[in-house]
Design a protein around this nucleic acid. Structure first.
Lengths: 120, 120
DNA sequence: CTGGATCCACTACGATACTG
DNA sequence: CAGTATCGTAGTGGATCCAG
């Protein structure tokens, strides 16, 4: 593992993908299989359609997801991870491991507090 | 490795730490040993003192770094990683691995183009 | 040397309404 | 169903100057 001084600059672009209010949970949903727009919208409720579109388009640009259109009425569009997208999973796992070891009290920031006895 | 539906919410708080324009490179500098304010300021040039202070304070709150003051004139303050902070390294390594495999063309976004042969 | 104080700009994100 | 168009907001990082 080469971790020299130029790493931060090289690694930083990943944050465009992992960053922001919805990206993590969005990617997580996609890890569990391809999904349609409305499906994602329900899972990420109360995300706005504009924001969901923005995030999805960014992921598409970055080669993380594919967008497949099945013509017909009603319209049918599927979002799926590319191989590159699936390759992000080890990063999630590393984050998850860290969270379990050290992240206990960080919860109070983004979660609003009603997660006390939740299932995990 | 348990990765169920509530993981994203649990993992998300890490992004407060990894997130933002300077956090990655800041943490990276700290991985290479404790540093003083001015030292970090030079390494992260052209970061503003306000922003550097903000980032450092956040990391302190989260238990990622310690701030040690050595009284005297001129003032001497050292920033160092806690064990929790050092525990972030596997996440960096996972990101680094991903970058090398899939992230080749992502570079053009955050780097403005004049970084070609830069040492950093 | 190590910041605090102020002011400002940008942009992610949201609400809502509308369309092929 | 799957978005687009518009408008609005709030938080975050930056510039600059000042202070213990």
């Amino acid at each position: 593992m080469m971790m020299d001084q130029s790493c931060p600059g090289k690694v930083e672009p990943i944050l465009e993908i992992l960053d922001g209010k919805w990206m993590l949970i969005l990617l997580f949903e996609l890890f569990n299989g391809n999904k349609r727009f409305g499906e994602l919208r329900r899972k990420l409720h109360p995300i706005s359609p504009k924001t969901l579109t923005d995030r999805l388009r960014l992921l598409e640009e970055k080669g993380i997801v594919t967008r497949t259109i099945y013509p017909g009425v009603p319209l049918h569009v599927e979002y799926d991870l590319t191989e590159s997208g699936r390759g992000l999973q080890p990063i999630f796992e590393a984050m998850w491991t860290w969270t379990q070891s050290y992240g206990a009290y960080l919860r109070n920031e983004t979660n609003e507090g009603e997660e006390a006895g939740k299932v995990m």
